[in-house]
Amino acid sequence: MEENKTKKVSRMEFLKNLGRGALLLFLGITGGAALARVKKKPAVWQIDPAKCIQCGRCATECVLRVSAVKCVHNFSLCGYCNLCFGFFQAGQRELTSGGENQLCPTGAIKRKFVEYPYYEYTIIEKLCVGCGKCVKGCTAFGNGSLQLQVMHDRCKNCNECLIAKACAGKAFVRIPAEKAYITKEGRES
């Protein structure tokens, strides 16, 4: 009886070993095939400003309640305009930061006098929801120094970015993580 049992167990054991071997092989094949497709460099999601059509989905589609996409200001392109179309609504009453003149729905752009006739425009990142209205205005009329970018301190780098899925301009790309932003440098108007 005892002998019989051990025999049986060892047969079971053998079968299990066989199964384990087969499954390992299968896993190896899957893993190997996947490894063949591996992209070596770590990458992150980013918006290509050249393709961005400012459709506004960045503000609404992100998995975060307040989107990981924010407007950033590329100061080296900025003209420091008095009449900034990223800041003012077209047809503004006057060139002041009164609520009726501002384009930004959350008032996230700060206008600061530098010296005559230059004004500095700073994005208050806490208030920015990434709707891209100012970007549209600046791209159309100005130098395009305002642009939307995925901020990597907020982005969760999901393996499937929901904004990328929803992006109408197909502007979301994966770029190498060491160069995680796409600036418009040199593409000034």
């Binding site: 503000a59 609404t60 309640r65 307040v66 989107s67 009453r93 009726e100 729905p105 959350t106 929801v129």
Partner: peptide, 30 residues
Amino acid sequence: GNIQDSPVLTALKAKLEKYPDNEKLLFEFR
């Protein structure tokens, strides 16, 4: 999570455009 244009503001804005010199309206809007 996103700010909306409220009907109150839109109405005020329209009013403001109609009477651009009305300071009171402006402050009300702001």
